[in-house]
Design a protein around this nucleic acid. Sequence first.
DNA 1: TCTTAAGCGGACGCGATCGTCCGTTTGGAC
DNA 2: GTCCAAACGGACGATCGCGTCCGCTTAAGA
Lengths: 226, 226
Amino acid sequence: MAESSRITARDGVRADARRNRERILVAARAVFAEHGIDAPMATVARRAGVGVATLYRHFPTRDALVRGAFARQMETCARALTEALAAPDPWQGFQHLVETVCALQREERGFPAAFVAAFPESTSDHAQSRRRAERDFTTLVRRAQASGALRADFHPSDLAVVLLAHCGLVTALPDDGAASRRLVAYLLQSFRTDTGNRPLPPPTALTLRSLPIATDSSQGQRPPGA
Amino acid sequence: MAESSRITARDGVRADARRNRERILVAARAVFAEHGIDAPMATVARRAGVGVATLYRHFPTRDALVRGAFARQMETCARALTEALAAPDPWQGFQHLVETVCALQREERGFPAAFVAAFPESTSDHAQSRRRAERDFTTLVRRAQASGALRADFHPSDLAVVLLAHCGLVTALPDDGAASRRLVAYLLQSFRTDTGNRPLPPPTALTLRSLPIATDSSQGQRPPGA
DNA sequence: TCTTAAGCGGACGCGATCGTCCGTTTGGAC
DNA sequence: GTCCAAACGGACGATCGCGTCCGCTTAAGA
């Protein structure tokens, strides 16, 4: 009769519930990749083979779902930052960090827009992660500047500028890794002190003609948040 | 009875119709600036003080409305390109062009997303403008490269990369001119051959914490009126 | 003034998405 | 096997935006 006797598993979650949760996350990644993170929740549910209610039970808000779906990518980002700090050459670390995060944005469609939700202010642990990430990144910047490779007037906030711009680019051109690579290469060059022009990845096939039509609003443009 | 006798004005448009058209365009710019180009058509109509039907009569599709609303900005872009070609120093022309377009994207909110719709493929005259713009820009690039100021591996398609990235940035951070200026400065530097680090505009106040939350799609609703 | 059609506006039907409610199923402890 | 709470799923009412339809208003030529 003790309530503990009713707990069904180590973590108190029934097997089918855990299974469904995983199916939902897989489906969410697929659907977000196809239709952007504004895709209907019902679509995710159908893809996962569960009812809408089940979806909402596991993830009460779209925000929670997005965060759940891209948790792994977020961890990869965090790891990249740790690795960057550990790298013997701070500039190498810096460059690798930027390239890794941008590669994630480029490869996992839906993730770029989700990224900025990565460090939600609501939950305290995440706020803490976020603060730590900021601190670590600032340290990395200082070191890279001290080593002479990163220009002295680079400001840690420039990372946000880069990420938002890159996010916009890959959101507009989901298939085009070339554009993303090109942008990143240009930006990294402008961050260096040693500024001899270095080889770039190949240019894109874009023309003004081929730019996506704006009012086809199927693309999730990110609205500003709080 | 002759149909020509019924024509009511020089251009065959009644005075109230012309007046309403203008009011709609003003309202559209305001509403697009506040809520993005996906704002409900009815909102534009209400703001303009006309009925929905009137709005649809003048602009049958949202696309037509967007194009009408930002026609002036598009002309400014076209003029900037012409001026850039006429500039004595091709690099100056190039730089001025990029800065002008980005300034427009930054200042007229809603325009950035609209920009890519600027040269619709449907109407032949616009397609022609677009082709001409491409040709002119390519010429500008060649000249700037010949002058030695623009790096040889800059490709005209890189303009699209810049514009899309910048569009993403200002869409995400509508109020923040600093971020836009910063990005443009970085990119222009990386386009130069002469690559000594030059002074940058001041950094932004962004932190990872302050990045907009992706899935809060509630959009910062304006507290007053609307 | 009179006439007429160009122009106007709001109501309406349609379709999509949201998030909840509630009856049914099922995992797993005993 | 029995039981029950956890979990499920689909139906449902509410909301929102779209674009059209139709009766009314009004500009402006005669």
